[in-house]
Write a protein that binds this DNA or RNA. Structure first.
Length: 454
DNA sequence: AACGATAGGGCCATAA
DNA sequence: TTATGGCCATATCGTT
């Protein structure tokens, strides 16, 4: 079985598309020539990802071989070597596993994607060589942002063209947000929407008709995924519903295809079912303005990369947000201004309350400053990548949010009771001083389980 | 501050 | 035939 993340056609593929993120080198220089059990295992995986860097876990090291080794040694500035002093051995470059997080972003920055291959069984019990497999694929849109600045999150945008219409699906895998938009076929409007979302990565159907000229990485997805039956299956399965009606997606083939593309890609790259993506937000064009790129630029709404460090954008000037959730919200409010009177007045009314009562503003800010990125922490549960310490941070953040809701007497359509339940459950289960690493122990709270206490 | 052992896989050469 | 020791990327720790 081939991965559906790249073309099965002879490589290099789709050369007339100038946007192609990576050009595939040809097969023969990719696969390693020697024939040992390990090389066979490696080639089996490598041939599925000819255009990506395969980081192959060998004991305490992630190693790259062959062409990959030549590339990584350059972009990571590490030594290119060979297994033995023997001439004519396969090139090798590697780093210890604990340094993964510092090298992967460099790979992404250089325009490559990284395929993480881990050991899948206990080496002690393995007969022959240990079983290995892909556990994660890191791409521009799935890299966990290290720089939290300006509330910018990494978004993946997929685009499908069908029957003279464009479907656009925007996903942020670290907050679990999924939005879908459908417009009539219009290149410049498509462009404006893409730019306004600032995607880190764009997904297109393989052999599709869409041509873009933005300087944004593109991944081509197997065209079978966006076919009618397949895409409907993907949605029904993912959202665990019996009909598309309950998602508000009756008779919406364009939206469905686009969403399927995104869900499929996330599943493939994360090697996990993205359960934290729970709902589809259908964004209609009414009620919000789509600003084009030059407007955003000339109004200086948000900071953009310039040679100078001057940043006089509206966002930077009015940004008094305390949390990254707030920063994200402010950013999206600026980029997609309201157009209808009623919601505008409601928003102003709320701002006015804080404007007139500064004491109250300070108090709320103080509480908010203790709140972590709840969206992101919650998503980490969905991705099975939360640490004990983060559980505690999540609990504290929810508690603080409940405090604010109480203070402000906000009558949001929030289920406060179940939130309190979650807080209660976490504090009963996980110890207050829970460490970052599971291996450090001291995770389970006292009095939760007698056997563990002892 | 500079060095050295160490980490854990698999391959290969050499020895028993 | 099987057992053993050297090798090989870098970060981190412990010792001078």
């Amino acid at each position: 079985m081939y991965s559906t993340l790249y073309s099965k056609s002879p490589i290099p593929r789709n050369t007339e598309n100038p946007l192609l993120y990576e050009k595939n080198p040809s097969y023969d220089i990719l696969l390693l020539m020697k024939d040992t059990p390990l090389i066979r295992q490696y080639n089996e995986i490598k041939k599925q990802y000819p255009d990506k860097i395969v980081l192959f876990r060998m004991g305490d090291f992630y190693e790259t071989f062959g062409e990959d080794a030549k590339i990584t040694s350059k972009i990571l500035n590490i030594t290119l070597t060979k297994r033995n002093k023997n001439e004519d051995q396969t090139p090798l470059a590697g780093f210890p596993y604990h340094a993964l997080d510092q090298y992967v972003p460099k790979i992404i920055e250089s325009g490559k994607c990284a395929v993480i291959v881990d050991q899948l069984e206990d080496p002690a019990q393995a007969k022959g060589i240990v079983r290995r497999g892909v556990t994660k694929i890191i791409t521009p849109g799935t890299l966990e942002a290290t720089d939290e600045q300006s509330g910018k999150s990494r978004k993946i945008v997929s685009i499908v063209e069908k029957k003279g219409r464009y479907g656009i699906c925007v996903v942020d895998i670290y907050t679990g947000m999924l939005q879908v938009i459908e417009i009539t076929k219009n290149q410049s409007e498509l462009r404006n929407i893409i730019v306004s979302y600032e995607p880190s990565e764009i997904l297109l159907e393989e052999e599709g008709s869409i041509r873009l000229s933005e300087n944004i990485p593109v991944q081509l997805i197997d065209k079978s995924i966006s076919k009618k039956d397949k895409s409907e299956d993907i949605l029904l399965n993912h959202f665990k519903v019996h009909s598309l009606h309950s998602l508000g997606l009756d008779n919406e083939p364009v939206k469905i295809s686009t969403i399927a593309l995104s869900l499929h890609y996330i599943k493939e790259t994360q090697q996990i079912d993205p359960q934290h993506i729970k709902k589809v937000q259908i964004v209609d064009q009414k009620g919000r303005m789509i600003l084009d790129e030059s407007t955003i630029r000339s109004l200086e709404l948000i900071p953009h990369l310039t040679v100078t460090n001057s940043d006089n954008s509206l966002y930077s000037i009015i940004n008094e947000t305390e949390t990254s959730m707030g920063a994200r919200l402010l950013r999206s409010w600026l980029l997609n201004p309201l157009t209808e009177k009623k919601p505008i007045l409601e928003r102003q009314k709320r701002v006015d309350v804080y404007y007139k009562d500064y004491e109250r503003t300070l108090e709320t800010k103080k509480i908010l400053s203790t709140v972590n990125d709840i969206d992101r922490l919650a998503s980490k549960i969905g991705l099975s990548r939360i640490t004990p310490k983060e559980f505690i941070a999540l609990k504290d953040s929810i508690e603080a949010s409940l405090q604010i809701i109480e203070n402000e007497k906000l009558e949001e359509s929030l289920d406060k009771e179940s939130l309190k339940e979650i807080v209660d459950k976490i504090s009963k289960t996980i110890s207050k001083e829970a460490p970052h690493l599971i291996s450090e122990g001291n995770i389970i709270a006292d009095n939760y389980n007698q056997e563990v206490d002892e």
